[in-house]
Simulated scan of single mutants.
Amino acid sequence: MTLRAPANGIEIAYDTFGSPGARPLLLITGLGCQLIQWDERFCALLAGRGYHVVRFDNRDSGESTHLDGAGTPALDGSGEVPYLLDDMADDAAGLLDALGWDTAHVIGLSMGGMIAQSLAIRHPRRVRSLTSIMSTPSPRAALLTDPDVLLPAFTPDRESAVRRALDNCAAVGSPGYPFDREWNAEIAGLGYDRSYDPAGTARQVAAIMASGDRAPRLGELAVPALVLHGEDDPLVPLPAGIATADAIPGARLITFPGMGHDLPAELWPAFVDAIDELTVSADSGR
């Protein structure tokens, strides 16, 4: 069941897995994505390790607030943008407030990793541990020279939108692992039904491009950190993951051959093991 909470002047849609008394774990998803793109089976694996898992829709996606009146900004970071990644990080902090969580372990995926980094920078005492997955400290480090390729096209109908989403997922997916076409088609269709908003995704792209380089501020963090990255990521290439790990003092970097810009189910056990090792160490103060 999707729940809603006020956060940072907007409304955030979220849902949960696991026991409310378990260790708090916040999942932040990527560009144009919705909470449903954190696979329920992956969330259940985390919950089974003793976490209270919360996944949510970022602003301008899913069932959270859409800033429709802000229009479609330039995607190169020039001119005015409606908001920055820092504002999206403050949304996440506001959700922590609404959940009654003083602190949480935080995992961010792609753009969600950028938001998680900003959350740790802006609200360091709220973040028990930081896991940044296939992300970057800077749009330049990610080599995103053509941000238009990140956008969903305006399409005339649901079928076309699902087909376009499948093509995009297959193009950036993991060459070393099977492409789960059935799951991706189901999620693309459900995502269209929940909210189809290319203009909202454009505003998120503008936020990425205008937010600049976080590396200097990441260098001031004192938070246990893990960086997971695919060695065959065509969208946010491996050097961006290396740059993320290099920027955060003491961060552990784990890379995966054959992994692209998605989360192959075959790697979930390795992801969960690494995340659990990080969080247990963080909670024990080591």
Rank of each mutant, 00 (worst) to 15 (best):
M1P: 14
A5Y: 04
P6V: 07
G9F: 08
G9E: 01
G9T: 05
I10N: 03
E11I: 10
I12T: 15
P20I: 01
L26C: 01
L26K: 00
L35D: 04
F42R: 05
L45V: 02
L46A: 07
A47R: 00
R49M: 00
G50T: 00
H52F: 00
F56G: 01
F56V: 02
N58W: 06
D60L: 07
S61P: 03
G62I: 04
E63Y: 01
E63G: 11
D68N: 14
T72G: 01
D76A: 09
G77R: 12
S78T: 15
G79H: 08
D86H: 12
D87Y: 11
M88W: 06
D90Y: 04
A93Y: 05
L95E: 03
L96A: 00
A98Y: 05
L99H: 02
W101R: 05
T103N: 00
V106C: 03
V106H: 02
Q117L: 10
S118L: 04
R122F: 03
H123P: 03
R126V: 00
V127I: 04
S129C: 05
T131L: 02
A142Y: 11
L144H: 06
P147A: 09
D148C: 01
V149N: 05
A153Q: 14
D167K: 12
G173Y: 11
S174A: 10
Y177I: 10
D180T: 05
N184K: 06
A185Q: 02
Y196N: 14
D197R: 12
P198K: 13
A199M: 13
G200T: 07
Q204H: 11
A210K: 13
L218W: 08
G219M: 08
L221E: 10
L221M: 11
A222D: 15
V223R: 13
V223A: 06
H229A: 13
G230V: 10
L238A: 13
I248N: 11
G250W: 01
F256Y: 15
M259K: 13
D262C: 07
A265V: 15
E266W: 08
W268D: 11
A270E: 15
A270H: 14
E277C: 07
S281V: 00
D283Y: 01
